[in-house]
Design a protein around this nucleic acid. Structure first.
Lengths: 235, 235
DNA sequence: TCAAAAAGTGAACTAAAAGAGAACAAAGAT
DNA sequence: ATCTTTGTTCTCTTTTAGTTCACTTTTTGA
């Protein structure tokens, strides 16, 4: 009934809907299948619709719905069926812990507010919804008050801070030489950069050859926090 | 079926109805989503209605009802489910409900075992203390069983995976083209690499110019898990 | 082994989603 | 009747997402 690609896409859509109820965009599906163009997704979606596996609202964003799955695919949603029986796991396969609700219990992480996004050279979008909180493991936190920001842009890519990562920032107004900080320049422009002190000046050093270091009088720069942790999601 | 905003609003409406049976006003919804204008809420409400998630009486204040929730938002607490046969009425459902446990439960962290270290081109150190667990935010997890590994070495540095990072791996034995996986070669050498399929062969592609891609017969390579999340600590 | 079907690419184009702000209209209360 | 709360509509802007087309490559089955 389905080709391999069609099934692969169907399973991806299904897992995303199961996961958070939000249907993936064509671009996300494209990435999920490792394609470079989303026109192929368009064709696959059409094929799945024609075969009665999904329903969609055309010309609407993220409006897919799975209405059936192919035979033999349990609705328990494993596109990654595991046969734990005979796999050689040399080192680390002894314990298998499932994130069952039981283990979601008490030993929880800590909730911190997600304050918005920060980009190279542009102000923080100061969103701060009451509703935006993320949970982070306690060991990622600093000693002080922390908040999270979503990173936008590639200015720190050479230090492994990628577009879309969530960074955990500890609120503070001073930083040591070489620390990565959220720095506010002239009270308006907040960026995530490595801070270097040079006499009465500070340098805000990006980690990307395509961006320039800013050297500024110390009084123009206010440190808003320092980087203490990072989270990334590959889904 | 829904966009992120639509889903966010739907969950808010649902929680308010569950909490005290009174639907929120447009202004309250606006505040809940951190917006400054309620015209956006009007549009979102229209979208939710069009998609069949809510019903409403136009021009009536606080007259929303939730008629279904997206797949996968099966609330962890049965009390917070929408009962399909018994719709929540905006007016005379004064049913008193305890504060939703769902939101508390959903926000807590999940413990997964830390299975050791993984390096480029060398076997995993089988450290695994049974006692090593780390807490990760639920949204970092995949759908299946997960475990964590500490990354050693620079082989994936160009994809922002640095020496010392902790990666969250979902146990699975298949992976899609282009996913980052823990791959076991010839049953003995486990590495973290991007997997590419090339006919009957698979390529294990590092993200570092100083390392070479390995192209191997598919049967020599066993996928042990795929990368779903990453944590980094700057302390 | 050849033709058809399926898959993949890239670009141009169009449309939807999202946010702001203001003015206005309807419903219900005093 | 008039005030307050709440919902509706408009215009405008930016960002995100869907559609289409022309063309190439790969896969598959007769």
């Amino acid at each position: 009934m389905l080709t391999a690609k069609q099934q692969q896409l169907l399973m991806f859509i299904n897992s995303r809907l199961k996961q958070d109820g939000i249907s993936p965009s064509f671009d996300e599906m494209k990435d999920a299948l490792g394609l470079k163009s989303k026109s192929g997704i368009h064709r696959l979606v059409g094929a799945l619709e024609e075969r009665g596996f999904i329903r969609r609202m055309t010309n609407r964003a993220r409006a897919l719905e799975v209405i059936k799955l192919p035979e033999g695919i349990g609705s328990t949603d494993s596109d990654t069926d595991v046969d734990p029986g005979n796999i050689v796991r040399p080192d680390f396969s002894k314990t298998q812990v499932k994130p069952s609700l039981a283990s979601v219990a008490m030993d929880s992480g800590v909730e911190i507010p997600l304050h918005g996004r920060i980009a190279a050279g542009t102000p923080i979008d100061a969103i701060e919804n009451a509703d935006s909180y993320i949970t982070v493991p306690p060991n990622l936190l600093g000693r002080g008050d922390c908040f999270a920001l979503e990173v936008s842009g590639d200015s720190m890519i050479e230090l492994g801070i990628m577009d879309g990562d969530t960074v955990v920032i500890e609120n503070c107004d001073t930083a040591r030489d070489g620390e990565i900080v959220v720095a506010l320049v002239d009270g308006e422009e907040a960026t995530l950069k490595t801070l270097k002190r040079q006499g009465g000046h500070v340098a805000l050093v990006p980690a990307n050859r395509d961006f320039d270091t800013q050297i500024l009088e110390a009084k123009r720069v206010r440190v808003q926090g320092r980087l203490v942790g990072l989270l990334r999601n590959y889904h």
